[in-house]
Design a protein around this nucleic acid. Structure first.
Length: 607
DNA sequence: CTTATGATGACTCACCAA
DNA sequence: TTGGTGAGTCATCATAAG
C-alpha cells in the first residue's frame, strides 16, 4: 500500500511483504505442528496429530531434557515420532504413556523413576548442579532432604488417579507458564507438597541466581560460586519472599475508593505527584499491563509480585466515559503530566445517548452504564420488560416498586437503554465502540458476526483511560515509538497511541484471534499509518530467538503493552474462574516472560 | 455449518445495623 | 467487631434457530 514505509533503516527486512513474512520466518521445526498449545494440557489423548518427522537441528538437547526428567529413551523416541519436536506435545505424550503404563497396578514403574533428575548423572542440566543443590542443603523447609528422592518417587507414583495426576498437571501448568520443564520438574521434586506459589517462588529464585551469574562482574563470580555467600543470599531471598507472602495472605492489595488510581483528569489524588519505582522495574522499555480489578483474592498480589512489586493502579473508566470498567494497571510509566484525549467523551448515559432521555423513567436513576461485557441482553428479555411495563401502564402512573426493581435489575445487569415508550434495548455494536473510545465501525465488516463483535469489544481496553496513562509518553518520543503489543485484541493500545498523536514506527502485535488481527490490520491501513505492523498469532510462540531478531531489526521496543486474558479471573465466569492458574489467564506469565526477555535482550544490546 | 439465545452461581467488597 | 444484604462482574455451555 504505502510505499513510504520502506524507510532508511529497514534494509534488513522487506517490510512490504505482508502476512507471509511471519510464516516464513518461524522455524518450522518447533511450531508448525501445533496450532493451539494451550489446549494440549487437557486433552492428552488427542495427541496423535501430524507425525512430522521434521529436521533435527539440536535433537540431542531436545531429547536430553526428557531424559533428565526421567523418561525412558524409547518412550521419548516414540513421543517425538508422533508429535514432532514440540516440547509441550512430547511432554504431554510422555505423561500419557506413563499414566497408561502405571494405571493398571500400583507397582512402581521401573521405567519412569525420577532418580536421574537429581542424581549425579552427567546428563543432568546445568541448573541442578550450579545452584539448586546448593540452596537446599541447609534449607530448613525441606527438613528431610535425605529422603527427598524416595518420597518424591512415592508421591509421584501414588497419585495416578484418572488421566493426569496432580503432579503432572502442575508440571504441565508450569511448563505452560514458560518455565523450562526440567526446571519445573526439579522444583517440584525439591518442594514436595509446596503450593504453586511456592514452586513459582522457587523458580524465581533460581532465575535470580542465574541472572546473578550472568550479570555480575567477572571478578565477583568466583567468590560467589565457591563460598557459602550465595547460598545464604538465596536463602535470605526466599525467606523474605515467604514472609512477604505470609503478610500478603492476610493483607491483600485493597482496591481504592474512589477507584481513580494515581489520578484522573477530573480528580487528582492529593499527596501523589511522583512515585519511586524499584530499580529493576525502570525501563527501557516502558511497560503497561492490564487486567480486571475484581479478580479473586491474591491474584493482584501475584501479578504485582511478578511485575517488580509495582503497586497496581486501579482505575474505573467511569471517570473517563459513560460506562464503568474497573481495571488494574501495572506499569512503569511516569505519572506526572498526563492529559486526557480530546474531544472528551460523553460522561453520562444521557450525554452519550440523548435520544433516550425522552423515554427514561424517573425511577431508573442510572447515570453510568455498568461494565460492557462480551455478550448482550437478548431481544426477548427486552420484550418481557416491555410487556411487564405495559401491563402496569393500564392502571395509570408508575409501575409498582416490585416491577421497578425487576426492570432495574435487568437493566443494570444487561446495560439496557430506554429507546421508546416502555421499550428497552441492549447497546448496538457501534455504540459500544463509541463508549470504549474506538472509531465507529472499528469492528464492523470483514465477515465478523455480531456476536463476535460484542465479544471482541467486551474484551478490549477503554481507549480514553489507557490513553490518559500513555499520554506521559508523548513528549518522551516525539519521533515515534516501537511497540510490542501482546494480546492486542482489536488494537486498543494502538488506537490510544494513535489518538494521542504518538507516531507508531513499528508495532508488533500478538493476537490469537484472526478476526481481531484483521480488524487491527484494517484499521492500520485505513488510518494511513506510516509505520510497520507486524503480527503474530500466539504469545507462546514468541521465544527468545524471535524477540532477538525483532529487537535487532527494529532497534528495540519502547513500550511493551498488553492485557492478558481475564476469563479465569472475572466474576462473570461461573464455570472456570480458576484464577491466574486458569488455562487462559495463565498467559499472564507469558507477558512476564516476554517482558523479561525484552529487558534482558535490550540491556545486552545497549552496553 | 454459523449465529443467537437462555440457563447456569460464586466471589468480593461496600455498606449498614446490631 | 460481626453478620446480613445488595450490587457488580473483559463468561461458558448446551441447544435452538437460521
Amino acid at each position: 500500500m504505502d510505499k513510504n514505509l520502506s524507510g532508511e533503516d529497514n534494509d534488513s527486512i522487506d517490510w512490504d511483504t505482508e502476512d507471509e513474512l511471519e510464516i516464513q520466518e518461524i522455524p518450522d521445526t518447533t511450531f508448525s505442528s501445533c496450532t493451539n498449545l494451550r489446549n494440549v494440557g487437557q486433552h492428552t489423548a488427542h495427541c496423535h496429530g501430524e507425525a512430522s518427522s521434521s529436521s533435527v537441528p539440536c535433537q540431542s538437547k531436545f531429547i536430553q531434557q526428557f531424559i533428565v526428567m526421567g523418561f525412558p529413551e524409547e518412550s521419548i523416541a516414540k513421543a517425538i515420532e508422533q508429535n514432532g519436536e514440540n516440547e509441550d506435545l512430547v511432554l504431554d505424550a510422555l505423561l500419557t504413556f506413563k499414566a497408561l503404563e502405571d494405571s493398571p497396578e500400583e507397582q512402581p514403574s521401573t521405567s519412569l523413576q525420577l532418580e536421574p533428575c537429581i542424581s549425579s548423572d552427567d546428563s543432568s542440566s546445568q541448573y541442578s548442579e550450579s545452584f539448586l543443590d546448593d540452596i537446599y542443603e541447609e534449607d530448613s523447609w525441606s527438613s528431610n532432604s535425605d529422603n527427598c528422592i524416595n518420597s518424591a518417587d512415592q508421591c509421584y507414583l501414588r497419585d495416578e488417579s484418572s488421566s493426569l495426576s496432580e503432579k503432572e498437571q502442575t508440571l504441565l501448568f508450569l511448563a505452560n507458564m514458560g518455565y523450562p520443564v526440567e526446571e519445573a520438574s526439579i522444583a517440584m521434586e525439591r518442594c514436595q507438597k509446596a503450593s504453586l506459589a511456592e514452586l513459582i517462588d522457587f523458580m524465581c529464585a533460581a532465575q535470580m541466581a542465574r541472572e546473578e551469574d550472568v550479570y555480575l562482574p567477572e571478578d565477583v563470580k568466583p567468590k560467589l560460586n565457591s563460598g557459602g555467600y550465595k547460598k545464604r543470599k538465596m536463602y535470605n531471598e526466599l525467606c523474605i519472599r515467604k514472609k512477604q507472602r505470609a503478610l500478603l495472605d492476610e493483607e491483600t492489595i485493597a482496591l481504592p475508593n474512589p477507584m481513580i488510581g494515581f489520578g484522573v483528569p477530573t480528580e487528582s489524588v492529593p499527596g501523589i505527584v511522583q512515585r519511586i519505582l524499584p530499580e529493576q522495574a525502570i525501563g527501557p522499555p516502558y511497560f503497561y499491563y492490564e487486567n480486571v480489578a475484581l479478580a479473586p483474592k491474591g491474584v493482584w498480589d501475584a501479578i504485582s509480585r511478578f511485575l517488580y512489586d509495582i503497586e497496581p493502579e486501579f482505575v474505573d473508566s467511569k471517570y473517563f466515559c459513560a460506562t464503568a470498567r474497573k481495571r488494574g494497571y501495572v506499569h512503569n510509566l511516569p505519572i506526572e503530566g498526563r492529559y486526557p484525549l480530546l474531544p472528551l467523551p460523553p460522561r453520562t448515559i444521557h450525554e452519550a445517548f440523548p435520544l433516550t432521555k425522552k423515554w427514561w423513567p424517573s425511577w431508573d436513576t442510572r447515570i453510568k452504564l455498568n461494565c460492557l461485557q462480551t455478550s448482550i441482553g437478548s431481544a426477548r428479555l427486552a420484550d418481557r420488560i416491555r410487556k411487564a411495563m405495559e401491563a402496569m401502564e393500564n392502571f395509570g402512573g408508575e409501575p409498582p416498586v416490585r416491577v421497578q426493581k425487576y426492570v432495574l435489575y435487568e437493566c443494570r445487569k444487561w446495560n439496557l437503554l430506554w429507546v421508546g415508550r416502555n421499550k428497552v434495548a441492549p447497546l448496538e455494536c457501534d455504540e459500544v465502540e463509541m463508549l470504549l473510545g474506538f472509531p465507529r465501525n472499528h469492528t464492523r465488516g470483514g465477515g465478523i458476526s455480531r456476536t463476535d463483535r460484542y465479544k471482541s469489544l467486551g474484551n478490549s481496553f477503554q481507549v480514553d483511560t489507557v490513553a490518559y496513562h500513555l499520554s506521559a509518553l508523548k513528549d518522551l518520543f516525539p519521533k515515534g515509538i516501537n511497540v510490542l503489543s501482546l494480546f492486542s485484541g482489536i488494537g486498543g493500545a494502538e488506537v490510544a497511541l494513535y489518538r494521542l498523536g504518538i507516531p507508531l514506527n513499528n508495532v508488533v502485535a500478538v493476537e490469537k484471534s484472526e478476526v481481531n488481527r484483521n480488524i487491527v490490520r484494517s484499521w492500520w491501513e485505513q488510518t494511513n499509518q506510516r509505520g510497520n505492523l507486524i503480527d503474530f498469532d500466539d504469545v507462546q510462540k514468541l521465544n527468545g530467538d524471535r524477540l532477538e531478531h525483532l529487537i535487532d531489526s527494529l532497534g528495540g521496543f519502547d513500550l511493551v503493552i498488553g492485557g492478558s486474558p481475564c476469563n479465569n479471573l472475572t466474576g462473570s465466569n461461573r464455570v472456570t474462574r480458576d484464577g491466574l492458574e486458569g488455562e487462559d489467564s495463565a498467559l499472564f506469565f507469558d507477558y512476564v516472560r516476554i517482558l523479561e526477555l525484552v529487558k534482558s535482550i535490550m540491556s545486552s544490546r545497549r552496553v
